[in-house]
Amino acid sequence: MALRNVVKRGDAILTKHCREVTEINDRIITLLDDMAETMREDMGVGIAAPQVGVARRVCIIEPEEGRLVEFINPEILESEGEQLSTEGCLSVPGMIGDVVRPQRLVVKYLDRYGNEKTEEFTDFEAVVVSHETDHLDGVLFVDKATNVREAGEEPQEDMTEVEN
């Protein structure tokens, strides 16, 4: 495993629609391992391949210690409800914003062994999955957020609704 540099906002790769993974090989396995190490080093709860300079449909989440989920070619099958989350991003350091995310998601994906899985995510996990899968479509949280501010600043009283 190796630490990778996290690509920052302004880099064109963060605005690209990522390509599907057609073969799970040693490069994809190494990418997953490196992403996990990089995410943990930077105290993140998720990271997507474009954030480490790879335009592939791969992302991981670790919403709590010991619960690592690796997604290859994730596809959101169901999305319901709404919740407002305050988010940050390793690619937009020092900034946070308020984003309306689904309360519940059902996602189909491949694991590192090529097994197809379908899993439900709710609450905070749904937020993290939604945030990371957005990266695979070239969307940053600041593209959807209201009240974008420096981390540590108090939110403004007059928050506006986010349009879906």
Rank of each mutant, 00 (worst) to 15 (best):
S85Q: 02
M1N: 00
R27L: 09
G152Q: 15
L68T: 12
E23L: 15
I24Q: 02
D11P: 03
D26K: 10
R101E: 08
K108G: 11
L3M: 04
D143P: 05
D158M: 15
E125V: 08
E157H: 04
D98Y: 01
L32A: 09
T118Y: 04
R4I: 12
E75Y: 14
T118N: 02
G46T: 11
P102N: 13
E119M: 12
P102R: 14
N147M: 12
E37C: 13
E78C: 10
N147C: 15
E153L: 07
N115V: 15
E125F: 15
M39G: 05
E116S: 15
E41G: 03
G94I: 04
E153Q: 07
P102Q: 15
C89D: 02
Y113D: 15
V69S: 08
V142H: 00
N25G: 05
M159P: 02
R40S: 13
E75P: 10
E20L: 09
D42W: 03
A12H: 00
A145R: 01
V162L: 04
E153T: 07
V92N: 03
R67H: 14
D26T: 09
R104V: 04
N115H: 14
P102K: 15
R149N: 04
V162H: 01
D11S: 03
F121Q: 03
G152M: 14
L105A: 09
A151T: 09
F71V: 06
G53Y: 12
P50V: 13
E87A: 14
Y113S: 07
V142G: 05
A55R: 05
L90P: 08
S130C: 13
D34L: 13
L136Y: 05
F121V: 07
V142R: 02
I29S: 12
G66M: 06
D137C: 09
A151P: 00
L140Q: 00
D134T: 12
G88C: 06
F71A: 02
L77E: 06
G10E: 00
C18A: 09
A151Q: 12
D111I: 14
E37Q: 08
V142E: 02
L84S: 07
E153I: 03
P63E: 14
V162E: 07
G94T: 06
V69H: 02
L140I: 15
Q103I: 01
T133F: 13
I61S: 06
A2G: 03
A2Y: 06
A55L: 06
E64I: 01
E116K: 13
E41I: 09
E80Y: 13
D34Y: 09
R9E: 08
L68V: 07
G97Q: 04
K117G: 06
Q156I: 13
K16P: 09
S79R: 15
G66V: 11
I76N: 11
M39V: 08
G138V: 02
M1D: 01
Q51M: 08
N164D: 01
E70W: 11
V99L: 04
V148N: 00
T133D: 01
L84M: 10
I60W: 14
C59Y: 14
E116R: 13
T38R: 06
D42C: 03
